[in-house]
Design a protein around this nucleic acid. Structure first.
Lengths: 150, 150
DNA sequence: CGGATATAATAACTATACTTACTATTCTCG
DNA sequence: CGAGAATAGTAAGTATAGTTATTATATCCG
Protein backbone atom coordinates (compact mmCIF):
# COMPACT_ATOMS: atom_id res chain seq x y z
CA UNK A 1 0.00 0.00 0.00
CA UNK A 2 2.36 2.68 -1.21
CA UNK A 3 -0.54 4.89 -2.19
CA UNK A 4 -1.85 5.46 1.32
CA UNK A 5 0.48 8.24 2.44
CA UNK A 6 0.35 10.11 -0.84
CA UNK A 7 -1.04 13.62 -1.11
CA UNK A 8 -3.70 12.61 -3.61
CA UNK A 9 -5.03 9.83 -1.42
CA UNK A 10 -5.15 11.98 1.72
CA UNK A 11 -6.90 14.77 -0.14
CA UNK A 12 -9.46 12.38 -1.59
CA UNK A 13 -10.16 11.04 1.91
CA UNK A 14 -10.53 14.55 3.31
CA UNK A 15 -12.99 15.38 0.56
CA UNK A 16 -14.93 12.24 1.34
CA UNK A 17 -15.11 13.11 5.05
CA UNK A 18 -16.07 16.69 4.25
CA UNK A 19 -18.91 15.58 2.00
CA UNK A 20 -20.17 13.07 4.54
CA UNK A 21 -20.19 15.61 7.38
CA UNK A 22 -22.07 18.05 5.15
CA UNK A 23 -24.67 15.46 4.14
CA UNK A 24 -25.16 14.31 7.70
CA UNK A 25 -25.89 17.80 9.01
CA UNK A 26 -28.19 18.65 6.09
CA UNK A 27 -30.10 15.44 6.66
CA UNK A 28 -30.35 16.08 10.41
CA UNK A 29 -31.83 19.50 9.65
CA UNK A 30 -34.36 17.90 7.33
CA UNK A 31 -32.77 19.61 4.34
CA UNK A 32 -31.60 18.31 1.02
CA UNK A 33 -28.68 20.27 -0.39
CA UNK A 34 -25.26 19.09 -1.53
CA UNK A 35 -22.00 20.99 -0.93
CA UNK A 36 -21.92 22.05 -4.57
CA UNK A 37 -25.51 23.24 -4.50
CA UNK A 38 -24.68 25.27 -1.39
CA UNK A 39 -21.65 26.86 -3.06
CA UNK A 40 -23.73 27.69 -6.13
CA UNK A 41 -26.49 29.25 -3.99
CA UNK A 42 -23.86 31.32 -2.20
CA UNK A 43 -22.48 32.60 -5.51
CA UNK A 44 -25.94 33.35 -6.89
CA UNK A 45 -27.01 35.26 -3.77
CA UNK A 46 -23.82 37.32 -3.76
CA UNK A 47 -24.15 38.07 -7.48
CA UNK A 48 -27.84 38.39 -8.38
CA UNK A 49 -28.53 37.91 -12.08
CA UNK A 50 -25.21 36.14 -12.63
CA UNK A 51 -25.02 33.86 -15.66
CA UNK A 52 -24.25 30.14 -15.38
CA UNK A 53 -20.74 30.31 -16.80
CA UNK A 54 -19.81 32.93 -14.19
CA UNK A 55 -21.21 30.77 -11.40
CA UNK A 56 -19.01 27.98 -12.70
CA UNK A 57 -15.96 30.26 -12.79
CA UNK A 58 -16.61 31.55 -9.26
CA UNK A 59 -16.75 28.14 -7.63
CA UNK A 60 -14.31 26.45 -10.02
CA UNK A 61 -16.64 24.17 -11.91
CA UNK A 62 -16.99 23.57 -15.57
CA UNK A 63 -19.93 24.86 -17.57
CA UNK A 64 -21.35 21.43 -18.28
CA UNK A 65 -21.62 20.41 -14.63
CA UNK A 66 -23.09 23.65 -13.37
CA UNK A 67 -26.09 23.32 -15.68
CA UNK A 68 -27.24 20.18 -13.87
CA UNK A 69 -26.58 21.72 -10.44
CA UNK A 70 -28.72 24.75 -11.27
CA UNK A 71 -31.36 22.46 -12.78
CA UNK A 72 -31.71 20.74 -9.43
CA UNK A 73 -31.79 24.03 -7.52
CA UNK A 74 -34.52 25.19 -9.90
CA UNK A 75 -36.55 22.01 -9.31
CA UNK A 76 -36.32 22.61 -5.55
CA UNK A 77 -37.73 26.09 -6.23
CA UNK A 78 -34.61 27.80 -4.85
CA UNK A 79 -33.53 29.67 -7.97
CA UNK A 80 -35.07 30.84 -11.21
CA UNK A 81 -33.53 31.31 -14.63
CA UNK A 82 -34.37 33.68 -17.42
CA UNK A 83 -32.83 34.46 -20.75
CA UNK A 84 -30.73 37.60 -20.53
CA UNK A 85 -32.00 40.55 -22.52
CA UNK A 86 -28.45 41.70 -23.15
CA UNK A 87 -27.20 38.35 -24.41
CA UNK A 88 -29.74 35.83 -25.54
CA UNK A 89 -27.22 32.97 -25.19
CA UNK A 90 -27.00 33.56 -21.45
CA UNK A 91 -29.39 32.65 -18.63
CA UNK A 92 -29.57 35.04 -15.69
CA UNK A 93 -29.94 33.19 -12.40
CA UNK A 94 -31.50 34.59 -9.24
CA UNK A 95 -32.62 33.06 -5.93
CA UNK A 96 -36.32 32.93 -5.16
CA UNK A 97 -37.84 33.99 -1.84
CA UNK A 98 -37.96 30.34 -0.88
CA UNK A 99 -34.30 29.95 -1.85
CA UNK A 100 -33.21 32.97 0.18
CA UNK A 101 -35.15 31.67 3.16
CA UNK A 102 -33.59 28.22 2.88
CA UNK A 103 -30.12 29.74 2.58
CA UNK A 104 -30.64 31.75 5.78
CA UNK A 105 -31.45 28.52 7.54
CA UNK A 106 -28.57 26.60 6.00
CA UNK A 107 -25.72 29.09 6.35
CA UNK A 108 -25.32 28.83 10.15
CA UNK A 109 -25.44 25.03 9.91
CA UNK A 110 -22.70 24.97 7.30
CA UNK A 111 -20.60 27.47 9.23
CA UNK A 112 -20.92 25.38 12.37
CA UNK A 113 -19.98 22.15 10.63
CA UNK A 114 -16.64 23.39 9.31
CA UNK A 115 -14.70 22.43 12.42
CA UNK A 116 -16.12 18.93 12.39
CA UNK A 117 -14.54 18.29 9.00
CA UNK A 118 -11.12 18.71 10.61
CA UNK A 119 -12.17 17.01 13.81
CA UNK A 120 -8.84 15.30 14.43
CA UNK A 121 -7.05 18.64 14.62
CA UNK A 122 -6.94 21.15 17.45
CA UNK A 123 -7.66 24.83 16.90
CA UNK A 124 -4.08 25.82 16.06
CA UNK A 125 -3.58 22.91 13.69
CA UNK A 126 -6.87 23.66 12.00
CA UNK A 127 -5.78 27.23 11.34
CA UNK A 128 -2.44 26.10 9.98
CA UNK A 129 -4.11 23.53 7.76
CA UNK A 130 -6.59 26.04 6.34
CA UNK A 131 -3.86 28.59 5.75
CA UNK A 132 -1.76 26.05 3.86
CA UNK A 133 -4.76 24.72 1.95
CA UNK A 134 -5.61 28.24 0.88
CA UNK A 135 -2.05 28.83 -0.26
CA UNK A 136 -1.91 25.52 -2.13
CA UNK A 137 -5.16 26.20 -3.95
CA UNK A 138 -3.58 29.45 -5.04
CA UNK A 139 -4.89 32.69 -6.32
CA UNK A 140 -7.21 31.31 -8.99
CA UNK A 141 -10.12 31.74 -6.61
CA UNK A 142 -9.74 35.50 -6.42
CA UNK A 143 -11.37 36.36 -9.72
CA UNK A 144 -14.77 37.94 -10.19
CA UNK A 145 -17.36 36.88 -12.75
CA UNK A 146 -16.96 39.00 -15.85
CA UNK A 147 -20.44 39.41 -17.21
CA UNK A 148 -23.48 40.11 -15.13
CA UNK A 149 -25.54 43.01 -13.89
CA UNK A 150 -25.24 43.82 -10.20
CA UNK B 1 -19.16 34.41 -1.38
CA UNK B 2 -19.03 33.21 2.18
CA UNK B 3 -18.35 29.66 1.03
CA UNK B 4 -14.95 30.36 -0.50
CA UNK B 5 -12.82 30.25 2.64
CA UNK B 6 -14.57 27.28 4.12
CA UNK B 7 -12.78 24.01 4.77
CA UNK B 8 -15.12 22.04 2.53
CA UNK B 9 -14.59 24.33 -0.42
CA UNK B 10 -10.80 24.38 -0.08
CA UNK B 11 -10.69 20.60 0.23
CA UNK B 12 -12.87 20.17 -2.84
CA UNK B 13 -10.56 22.47 -4.81
CA UNK B 14 -7.48 20.56 -3.64
CA UNK B 15 -9.10 17.32 -4.75
CA UNK B 16 -9.87 18.85 -8.11
CA UNK B 17 -6.26 20.01 -8.57
CA UNK B 18 -4.93 16.64 -7.43
CA UNK B 19 -7.11 14.77 -9.92
CA UNK B 20 -6.14 17.11 -12.76
CA UNK B 21 -2.40 16.77 -12.06
CA UNK B 22 -2.78 12.99 -11.98
CA UNK B 23 -4.71 12.89 -15.26
CA UNK B 24 -2.25 15.20 -16.97
CA UNK B 25 0.77 13.06 -16.08
CA UNK B 26 -0.96 9.82 -17.00
CA UNK B 27 -1.97 11.29 -20.33
CA UNK B 28 1.56 12.58 -20.98
CA UNK B 29 2.89 9.08 -20.34
CA UNK B 30 0.38 7.67 -22.82
CA UNK B 31 -1.43 5.86 -20.02
CA UNK B 32 -5.04 5.70 -19.02
CA UNK B 33 -5.53 5.21 -15.30
CA UNK B 34 -7.50 7.25 -12.78
CA UNK B 35 -6.35 7.97 -9.21
CA UNK B 36 -8.88 5.47 -7.90
CA UNK B 37 -7.80 2.79 -10.33
CA UNK B 38 -4.19 3.38 -9.23
CA UNK B 39 -5.12 3.06 -5.55
CA UNK B 40 -7.04 -0.15 -6.27
CA UNK B 41 -4.10 -1.62 -8.22
CA UNK B 42 -1.80 -0.77 -5.33
CA UNK B 43 -4.07 -2.55 -2.86
CA UNK B 44 -4.46 -5.60 -5.12
CA UNK B 45 -0.71 -5.92 -5.68
CA UNK B 46 0.02 -5.65 -1.97
CA UNK B 47 -2.71 -8.19 -1.13
CA UNK B 48 -2.89 -10.82 -3.88
CA UNK B 49 -6.18 -12.69 -3.96
CA UNK B 50 -7.96 -9.99 -1.97
CA UNK B 51 -11.75 -9.81 -2.35
CA UNK B 52 -13.51 -6.71 -3.65
CA UNK B 53 -15.03 -5.70 -0.32
CA UNK B 54 -11.56 -5.70 1.27
CA UNK B 55 -10.16 -3.57 -1.55
CA UNK B 56 -12.98 -1.13 -0.85
CA UNK B 57 -12.20 -1.14 2.87
CA UNK B 58 -8.47 -0.60 2.26
CA UNK B 59 -8.86 2.46 0.10
CA UNK B 60 -12.03 3.74 1.80
CA UNK B 61 -14.56 3.15 -0.93
CA UNK B 62 -17.93 1.58 -0.80
CA UNK B 63 -18.57 -1.85 -2.23
CA UNK B 64 -20.87 -0.61 -4.98
CA UNK B 65 -18.30 1.76 -6.49
CA UNK B 66 -15.34 -0.61 -6.34
CA UNK B 67 -17.13 -3.14 -8.56
CA UNK B 68 -17.11 -0.68 -11.45
CA UNK B 69 -13.48 0.30 -10.82
CA UNK B 70 -12.36 -3.33 -10.93
CA UNK B 71 -14.52 -3.92 -14.00
CA UNK B 72 -12.55 -1.25 -15.82
CA UNK B 73 -9.21 -2.61 -14.62
CA UNK B 74 -10.30 -6.03 -15.86
CA UNK B 75 -11.22 -4.62 -19.28
CA UNK B 76 -7.77 -3.04 -19.53
CA UNK B 77 -6.36 -6.50 -18.83
CA UNK B 78 -4.65 -5.34 -15.62
CA UNK B 79 -6.43 -7.62 -13.14
CA UNK B 80 -8.38 -10.86 -13.21
CA UNK B 81 -11.21 -12.05 -10.99
CA UNK B 82 -12.24 -15.52 -9.96
CA UNK B 83 -14.84 -16.89 -7.62
CA UNK B 84 -13.27 -17.81 -4.30
CA UNK B 85 -13.22 -21.50 -3.46
CA UNK B 86 -13.59 -20.73 0.22
CA UNK B 87 -16.56 -18.40 -0.21
CA UNK B 88 -18.50 -18.57 -3.42
CA UNK B 89 -19.98 -15.10 -2.81
CA UNK B 90 -16.55 -13.52 -3.05
CA UNK B 91 -14.36 -12.76 -6.08
CA UNK B 92 -10.62 -13.05 -5.58
CA UNK B 93 -8.76 -10.33 -7.48
CA UNK B 94 -5.17 -10.56 -8.72
CA UNK B 95 -3.05 -8.45 -11.06
CA UNK B 96 -2.04 -9.95 -14.39
CA UNK B 97 1.49 -9.81 -15.80
CA UNK B 98 0.41 -6.88 -17.92
CA UNK B 99 -1.02 -5.17 -14.85
CA UNK B 100 2.14 -5.65 -12.81
CA UNK B 101 4.20 -4.29 -15.70
CA UNK B 102 1.97 -1.24 -16.07
CA UNK B 103 2.12 -0.59 -12.33
CA UNK B 104 5.93 -0.66 -12.40
CA UNK B 105 5.81 2.01 -15.06
CA UNK B 106 3.17 4.09 -13.30
CA UNK B 107 4.46 4.08 -9.73
CA UNK B 108 7.47 6.37 -10.29
CA UNK B 109 5.30 8.79 -12.26
CA UNK B 110 2.75 8.97 -9.48
CA UNK B 111 5.45 9.35 -6.83
CA UNK B 112 7.03 12.17 -8.79
CA UNK B 113 3.76 14.02 -9.28
CA UNK B 114 2.90 14.27 -5.58
CA UNK B 115 4.80 17.51 -5.04
CA UNK B 116 3.11 19.16 -7.98
CA UNK B 117 -0.27 18.73 -6.29
CA UNK B 118 0.94 21.04 -3.52
CA UNK B 119 2.84 23.25 -5.90
CA UNK B 120 2.08 26.49 -4.07
CA UNK B 121 3.81 25.24 -0.92
CA UNK B 122 7.51 24.98 -0.15
CA UNK B 123 9.06 21.79 1.19
CA UNK B 124 8.47 22.59 4.88
CA UNK B 125 4.88 23.68 4.30
CA UNK B 126 4.23 20.57 2.25
CA UNK B 127 5.43 18.37 5.08
CA UNK B 128 3.29 20.23 7.60
CA UNK B 129 0.28 20.00 5.35
CA UNK B 130 0.68 16.25 4.81
CA UNK B 131 1.22 15.65 8.51
CA UNK B 132 -1.96 17.56 9.39
CA UNK B 133 -3.93 15.93 6.56
CA UNK B 134 -2.88 12.53 7.83
CA UNK B 135 -3.93 13.42 11.34
CA UNK B 136 -7.27 14.84 10.16
CA UNK B 137 -8.06 11.74 8.14
CA UNK B 138 -7.46 9.79 11.32
CA UNK B 139 -6.68 6.23 12.08
CA UNK B 140 -9.41 4.64 10.00
CA UNK B 141 -6.87 3.99 7.27
CA UNK B 142 -4.78 1.67 9.42
CA UNK B 143 -6.95 -1.41 9.19
CA UNK B 144 -6.14 -4.54 7.21
CA UNK B 145 -8.56 -6.47 5.05
CA UNK B 146 -10.09 -9.25 7.07
CA UNK B 147 -10.65 -12.06 4.63
CA UNK B 148 -8.22 -13.11 1.98
CA UNK B 149 -5.42 -15.58 1.43
CA UNK B 150 -1.93 -14.13 1.34
C1' DC C 1 -31.00 -29.32 11.59
C1' DG C 2 -33.08 -25.04 10.09
C1' DG C 3 -34.53 -20.34 10.38
C1' DA C 4 -32.67 -15.66 11.30
C1' DT C 5 -28.86 -12.94 10.41
C1' DA C 6 -24.90 -11.35 8.11
C1' DT C 7 -22.06 -10.72 4.11
C1' DA C 8 -20.27 -10.31 -1.12
C1' DA C 9 -21.49 -8.67 -5.12
C1' DT C 10 -24.55 -6.51 -8.39
C1' DA C 11 -28.23 -3.47 -10.00
C1' DA C 12 -30.65 0.79 -10.19
C1' DC C 13 -30.77 5.54 -9.08
C1' DT C 14 -28.95 10.23 -7.98
C1' DA C 15 -25.30 13.71 -8.06
C1' DT C 16 -20.94 15.26 -9.09
C1' DA C 17 -17.02 16.17 -12.51
C1' DC C 18 -14.86 16.39 -16.80
C1' DT C 19 -14.43 15.86 -22.09
C1' DT C 20 -15.84 16.61 -26.69
C1' DA C 21 -19.21 18.02 -29.87
C1' DC C 22 -23.01 20.90 -31.26
C1' DT C 23 -26.31 24.92 -31.56
C1' DA C 24 -27.36 29.60 -31.00
C1' DT C 25 -25.61 34.04 -30.52
C1' DT C 26 -22.45 37.68 -30.17
C1' DC C 27 -18.25 39.94 -31.06
C1' DT C 28 -14.27 41.33 -33.81
C1' DC C 29 -11.85 42.86 -37.34
C1' DG C 30 -10.58 43.34 -42.05
C1' DC D 1 -20.96 45.06 -43.33
C1' DG D 2 -19.94 40.25 -43.08
C1' DA D 3 -17.07 36.11 -42.26
C1' DG D 4 -14.65 33.87 -38.75
C1' DA D 5 -13.59 33.60 -33.88
C1' DA D 6 -15.39 33.42 -29.40
C1' DT D 7 -18.86 32.46 -25.93
C1' DA D 8 -23.26 30.46 -23.36
C1' DG D 9 -25.56 26.63 -22.83
C1' DT D 10 -26.85 21.78 -23.76
C1' DA D 11 -26.07 16.94 -24.93
C1' DA D 12 -23.74 12.61 -24.77
C1' DG D 13 -20.27 9.72 -22.88
C1' DT D 14 -17.11 8.12 -19.06
C1' DA D 15 -15.75 7.72 -14.19
C1' DT D 16 -16.36 8.48 -9.53
C1' DA D 17 -19.20 8.23 -5.10
C1' DG D 18 -22.87 7.14 -2.51
C1' DT D 19 -27.80 4.98 -1.30
C1' DT D 20 -31.07 1.32 -1.22
C1' DA D 21 -32.68 -3.12 -2.82
C1' DT D 22 -31.87 -7.79 -4.43
C1' DT D 23 -29.61 -12.24 -4.96
C1' DA D 24 -26.63 -15.78 -3.54
C1' DT D 25 -24.20 -17.76 -0.06
C1' DA D 26 -22.38 -18.36 4.79
C1' DT D 27 -22.72 -18.45 9.48
C1' DC D 28 -24.78 -18.53 13.91
C1' DC D 29 -27.71 -20.08 17.26
C1' DG D 30 -31.62 -22.19 19.39
Amino acid sequence: MKARGMAGHLIRRLNQISTQVFSKHMHNAGLDLTPVQFAAMDAIITHPGIDQASVAALIAYDRATIGGVIDRLEHKGYVRREVSKRDRRAREVRVTGKGAEAFEQILPIVTALQDEVLNGLDETERETFLKLAHKAVGSEDDMEPSSHVE
